[in-house]
Structures are given as C-alpha cells and as structure tokens.
Design a protein around this nucleic acid. Sequence first.
DNA 1: TTGCGTGCAAAGGTTTTGCATGGCA
DNA 2: TGCCATGCAAAACCTTTGCACGCAA
Lengths: 142, 142
Amino acid sequence: MKQDTGYKTRQKEKLLDYLINNSGRHTNVQEISAFLMSEGTPVGTATIYRQLDRLVDSGVVRRYNFDGKTGACYQYIGNSGRCHEHFHLKCTSCGQLIHLDCGRLSDISRHIAEHHGFFIDPSKTVFYGICPECRNSENKQP
Amino acid sequence: MKQDTGYKTRQKEKLLDYLINNSGRHTNVQEISAFLMSEGTPVGTATIYRQLDRLVDSGVVRRYNFDGKTGACYQYIGNSGRCHEHFHLKCTSCGQLIHLDCGRLSDISRHIAEHHGFFIDPSKTVFYGICPECRNSENKQP
DNA sequence: TTGCGTGCAAAGGTTTTGCATGGCA
DNA sequence: TGCCATGCAAAACCTTTGCACGCAA
C-alpha cells in the first residue's frame, strides 16, 4: 500500500482516466490497450502492466482473477476510506460474472472475522453457482 | 461431477497418491511434476494437467486460483459427501483449508437465492483470506 | 483388438524483463 | 542534469492441443 511518488506522464494519466471512467465494471489489459489505441494515444503493454501493478499496490485499483484461465481483471475502487465490500458471483453454467454489492455480504465478512478470526479478502473470493437465467432455462428444459 | 470410468494407469495412481499424501496442503503442477520426477516415475506435464482436470471434474480435488500471478493450486479433498454441504475458507498466506460449518453461511446462500436469484454451489465456492494464525504472525512482525 | 492414456513438442495467451531512449522535474 | 517512465522485443510462464505410440481391458 505505498504511495505513487513518481512523475506525472501522459500514459499514466490516460490510463487512470480510463479506469475511473469505467469504475462500475471490470476491465482488462486487452481492453485498456485497445481503447487507448483507438483514442489515438496508444500505450505500450508493458507500461500498462507496470502502471496497473503500481495502482494495485497503492490500493486504488483492485486486481481480480476469476478463473486462472483468462487474464486478470482490474477495477478502479478509489481511495475512499469507506472500502465497501463487494463480492462476485460467477455462473458455472454460462460463465457470466455478477457484481454484487449487498450489505448482507459485508455482514458475513464481519461475522467470520469476529467469530472465526478469519479475514476474508473480497477481491479474491468468488461465489460459484447458477445464475437466474440459467436456472430458468434449466427448469424449462430438464 | 462425473465418475472416472477410464483405465487404471501408473501415472494416474502416482498422481493420486501424491495428492492424498499431501491432503493437508495445496500443491501445484510444478511440485507434482518435480516430485514424481524425483521418485523415478516422471509423468508428462500434459498428463498431469489432464488428470487434474479430471479429478477436479469428479470432485475429489479442488482447484484454487488466488492471484493470477502464480499458477493454479490443487488440493485433495476426497469424496466424503460432507464437504459439499459446508463452506471453505482458504488462507492465501499459509494455504490452510478451513472447513466452516456455520449457520450464518447457510443464511447467506438463502439470502442470495431469495433476493438475487442466484443459487450458490458451496462445493465450488471458497472464501479466500487470512487465517487467525497468519494474522497474528503478521501483527507480530510487520 | 479397441480406444483411452501418455509423452513430446508446438502453440496459445498473459505477464515480465532488459535495454536504449524519451521526458519530467 | 539526474532519474524515472516508456516502448519494443524477447523471454518467461502456465496451460492447452495435435499427433503418434503405448498400453489397459
């Protein structure tokens, strides 16, 4: 969780802009690279990785790894002290990733910390199961 | 969750032996490969991956991915039906797997099913975080 | 004999690294 | 000017795939 004390560069700014403008969802290196390219301000892949590492380190960006099969995902979460616990649900049938921000889940983290002494890391935890859509189609065609 | 109806081979046996003898911790393809090599019964990497996929599929082995930086980890959990009912906590620091049977967690499954329409599969879901022991040693030596 | 399992090597994709150059302070 | 940041290409990694051969049943 170190501060970024480095220089201010065009690449760094553009990258952070993109992440902030997409705070609501996950993105990945490929998307970032393609977007910056399309904007006419291409940034080398190595630089993207290096800056992302740095941002993850400083805590303003989170890195997710959903299945180890595809590359990592990143999401801007800022440094608002109110680190709201947000979890993910992944459908094992269609692969859809659902973003769940629900107070009940924070309760669980707290419960497990207080009663079981275990500190959950929401950025690494994914709930696997069946999403509503797949559940419905299963019922229709058993 | 399919059964392994295939042939019995030396490679398959050796791999499963290793996993069972290391049930208490997670391991990875590199370790497995090195061990089998050192035992004088080398097994090709592709075969290890193929067999692991199969074991994961049949439910006796779990695959873990916590950071996207390193490869996947695997751990034998057997096929005692019991593990499919409760949740698991995995310490990303020491690798310990904690079996957690807590009513609060069932509540969560129910809540997510009722309010979000998503049906969690506890046998595939793992909470990642830091266990009490590692938490303590972290605090002692910052 | 049949066809699954294996090994090898090659391919695939993601991420890291070395090194010379560019650009902030 | 002194360093950090960047870009490129190469390398490092993990995992999958194609194919011929071996081996269990």
